[in-house]
């Protein structure tokens, strides 16, 4: 099968047409195009059907989209019935979304950001920023390549390939690491900003931090951190205007 490298590169734009109807669907079709090229000569009508299927609704974490892409393309070459491929695609949305989100958005990313912030607060220079980018991108590019290769190799058996792989174990480990890294970073960042401003200021800040954490619990999740901050800013400006 040709076009694997092209498909891998295109996977890095898999959210290029993100929308609330097909979500990643059309962009996954864009990534599938080079992989399906060989099918065009072998079976033109199958190729056309495969292109239609490749752009239908799909959603998952973008870093693991290669698993679904590889598996469905392999199934097209294996002449698996179209309805079965569509069912596979639908069935992969939730697990790939959950695993990928926990691994990357709730795990690796906060872990590396927390570590980078802590390193910056402890005197690290620009190399910390570069190191963060290099480390994160090494992991996600390797993961994307692994995902595409695993999907292409396993086809309809991709579910078993995922559950027997390193993914579930990594998810279990990276979560605590993220909690720890963010935990280390927060007091260091707080001291970096507030220590030069004095103890009284820090005490006032502690009250506001507590309120900020409690607010979404009291007022519901729609009262986000940004909304709390904007309300606090407005209150501060109004107070200063009133007491001028």
């Amino acid at each position: 099968m040709t076009g694997v490298l092209h498909a891998l590169l295109r996977l890095f734009t898999v959210q290029g047409t993100w929308n609330y109807e097909r979500m990643l669907g059309v962009s996954l079709g864009y990534a599938a195009e080079p992989l399906l090229e060989d099918l065009k000569a072998a079976d033109p009508s199958r190729h056309s059907e495969a292109i239609v299927r490749s752009a239908e609704f799909f959603n998952c974490n973008p870093n693991l989209a290669g698993l679904a892409l590889g598996a469905t393309v392999r199934a097209e070459y294996d002449a698996v019935p179209g309805a079965q491929i569509a069912r596979l695609r639908t069935a992969l949305c939730s697990p790939l979304g959950a695993l990928g989100d926990q691994l990357f958005w709730a795990g690796l990313l906060p872990a590396l950001v927390g570590a980078a912030l802590a390193a910056l607060m402890l005197g690290g220079g620009w190399w910390v920023v570069v190191g963060f980018l290099v480390l994160y991108n090494t992991v996600r590019i390797w993961t994307a390549a692994w995902a595409l290769r695993t999907g292409l190799d396993s086809g309809m058996d991709v579910g078993a390939a995922i559950s027997g792989s390193w993914l579930p174990r990594a998810v279990a480990r990276v979560g605590p690491a993220a909690g720890f890294a963010v935990g280390v970073a927060v007091p260091l960042v707080a001291a970096w900003y507030l220590a030069p401003l004095g103890v009284g200021v820090s005490a006032g800040a502690l009250v506001l931090v507590t309120l900020g954490i409690a607010a979404p619990r009291w007022l519901g999740p729609r009262f986000t951190a940004v909304r709390f901050a904007l309300v606090a800013v407005m209150a501060t400006l109004l107070f200063h205007l009133a007491t001028r």
Binding site: G183, L194, A215, F228, T236
Partner: peptide, 23 residues
Amino acid sequence: VTLTVVLVSCGLAAALGGAIRSA
């Protein structure tokens, strides 16, 4: 200065609140 302290505090609350929620 007050505005700076308010925003830093809100940022710290956001990071910590998010970490507690994820945990």
